[in-house]
Design a protein around this nucleic acid. Structure first.
Lengths: 346, 346
DNA sequence: TTGTAAGCGTTATCAT
DNA sequence: ATGATAACGCTTACAA
């Protein structure tokens, strides 16, 4: 699909390319007459500057890469939505990559992103990722990286996360305050940042309420189908008197509910399952599923803002920071459920 | 972030850039010795060809654009997943755009995509889109476009869709066979292709079973929050004796269920609400929500395959076709529900 | 077998 | 106020 170039305009108007270029950029050193002429002609032939030529010249592409474990995941698609909204307004393109929770694919994609001259990277780590030299290598050379959601201790750059500790603390405490004592925690792989923080929040809540921590109540999983099922089965076998579940994502929550349903186990009471989740449908379940809402969209927006500010700022000196956005606890109780107000401290 | 160029290699090895270039591309006219030397050095300094320079030269970017109404929509994120999987394997990049169901934004994005030299476009039309001259203009000039899901009659190009007629027919017939007679149909805006096809399927099923078509049972909506609620209310006011709902998407289905719950109306029986949806959670509802499953991932894959084949083929002569993928009816009934086997024809 | 030079579209520098 | 030229990184006639 060939298009009009500056050269074409120059030829048509008997001018040099440099004059045309300057006229188009509204340079002061161009005769108003000529300017008008060029602009009018450019308009008429629908001239559009070739972004690739610009990229080559300026050594940047005005596009940012987003590398997430899975696009088809409610949380990440919300985050991407936030990212796209910011990028769009600031004239950047969003190029999407998936790691499919594979460390190998993450590494390959990161290399690829840099090689493709994508200006910067927004990344949420795969659940397999422990070593992050692939990020260090490029980060040290000044390549802009912003981590979001699943971040990592060992790199000093911008990070945007939900307050997972606080969310987990609130969730666990809520379960405790409604009378639960044996609270299972189903979460992602132990090396994932969000899993670590949530476990800390869970422990802290137990500690505050003087409930001993029992490691066998904690289960880790990737996001493989059927994985949650066997995990729940195993858990119920080993710890039959569990009285609540605290889950680490909507997928785990749903998998957990599915399994309980298959096994004909009903959730003891309305508030005995609570998890990190943004799914609206949870409201429709009976008993409805309470949840810790993560501001995925806003996290995406914030991450994109930080990256773009970084890209557009002239001086390489940056003060890195971690932005922590609050979660929101949404208690959904069926009408026949009466919370213990004393325990809840209402 | 500066990187090694062919020029750097040439300088280092005292060769010309063309020799290096040829050596890297394994040209027959290069001395094996030299070749080895160049390759080894390139390897050592981690040379990566600059894709932007290549793009400028070849006038293509090895990236494809995806323009969907909303990323954060289960259906589209599954489709994008399919697209990404194919593109990744074939060395293409996926650049994401959203129209947010706005015709204006769709037009702007399409212009942008072409101007950015993105090689081809995968698009699912916004619900506002009636006129498609923005597509015609570029399609006529040979710009590769593949429509998926929400397609359009008035353009002759590749299209990939689910068999919406068939799906709607099956859904409606299922409701009829389980005893429903007054079946409401909540769907997207009337100009959207999928809405049209589904309405036809719905009508056909009624016709087959000699049930008169009643236009006031049909309601159209965009995807605005709260829109479904007032639509359902209005519907229930005007037609209080509705005995089933057939919905056009998971969002509408969920909105519908939410409203019914708010109004304290229980779904008459297990199979009285059925809709196009891919949500796993529907299984967990009580009564569980039956659905027409659309192969969103496969639709994305297929669309991407067609586009990339098109891009890579030398001759511009193409035989356009519309690929129609079957839907699957998933009947989810609670254990205490007994289907009328006679009516079902089992 | 290797080197030179032109060109992809644009802008910046240096003339004029 | 305008034009010629070089440069961004790469490939490919065309020369040698």
């Amino acid at each position: 699909l060939e298009s009009v170039t500056i050269k074409d305009i120059a030829k048509a108007l008997n001018l040099s390319t440099s004059t045309v270029s300057r006229a188009l950029r509204d340079s002061y050193e161009i005769n108003p007459e000529t300017k008008k002429l060029v602009l009018a002609y450019a308009e008429r032939v629908n001239y559009r500057p070739n972004p690739i030529a610009l990229s080559l010249r300026e050594n940047k592409s005005r596009s940012i890469g987003v590398l997430v474990p899975e696009i088809a995941n409610n949380y990440f698609s919300q985050a991407i939505n936030g990212i796209e909204s910011v990028a769009y307004n600031r004239g950047y393109h969003v190029v999407i990559f998936q790691s499919h929770e594979s460390y190998q694919r993450e590494v390959v994609n990161v290399e690829h992103i840099v090689a493709r001259k994508i200006d910067g990277l927004l990344i949420s780590l795969s659940s397999e990722t422990i070593d992050i030299t692939h990020l260090h290598q490029i980060h040290e050379k000044g390549y802009p990286i912003v981590l979001f959601d699943r971040v990592h201790d060992q790199i000093e750059t911008f990070k945007v996360v939900a307050d997972n500790f606080e969310g987990a603390f609130k969730a666990t405490e809520h379960l405790i305050l409604t009378g639960r004592r044996k609270i299972a925690h189903l979460t992602s792989l132990p090396d994932v940042s969000i899993a670590k923080e949530r476990l800390l929040g869970y422990k802290e809540a137990l500690k505050k309420h003087k409930i001993p921590y029992n490691e066998s109540l904690i289960r880790y999983c990737k996001f493989a189908v059927g994985e949650v099922e066997s995990m729940v089965d195993d858990l119920l076998n080993q710890e039959p008197d569990i009285d609540a579940f605290f889950t680490g994502s909507d997928r785990i929550a749903v998998g957990c509910l599915e399994t309980l349903k298959l096994r004909n186990i009903s959730i003891p009471e309305d508030v005995s399952l609570i998890g990190f989740s943004n799914l609206r449908v949870l409201d429709l379940l009976s008993p409805p599923l309470s949840s810790i809402f993560q501001p995925a969209f806003e996290i995406g927006q914030m991450a994109a803002e930080l990256l773009l500010d970084w890209l557009e700022q002239k001086h390489p000196v940056v003060q890195f920071k971690t932005v922590k956005l609050p979660t929101e606890m949404i208690i959904r109780a069926s009408s026949n459920y009466q919370a213990n107000e004393e325990l809840l401290g209402v």
